[in-house]
Amino acid sequence: MALLADIASWACLIAGSLFALIGAVGIVRLPDVFARMHGAGIVDTLGMGLILAGLMIHEGFTMVTVKLVLIVVFIFFASPTTTHALARAALNGGLKPLVDGKNAPSAEPGERTGGPSKT
């Protein structure tokens, strides 16, 4: 049983580290701020979440686990808020999302039947 928990905890730590690395590679590689937010999203959700989940499994059910859960819940609430504030600031600062390699204004308001409306 202890061995099983160890293996699960290691798997979570390895997978979390991998996702964090991929997210950071995304932050470096993706072409503009709005695209880089997706990379930061990977770091903030699955990267952080899996590493802390690995720590939780290692610890078992104690006060430490409760604190880890608190950290995870807080980051899950804070991360979209930060991203949204940053996106609004970037739009306000005159940045336009790159669409198909060129700066395009946002699509005209349409209903969600319209397919990925691109301009």
Binding site: V33, R36, M37, G93
Partner: peptide, 14 residues
Amino acid sequence: TIYDRILAVNAFGT
């Protein structure tokens, strides 16, 4: 841009 830096620093903080 400054927004890239804020984004990166936020990820760094996490």
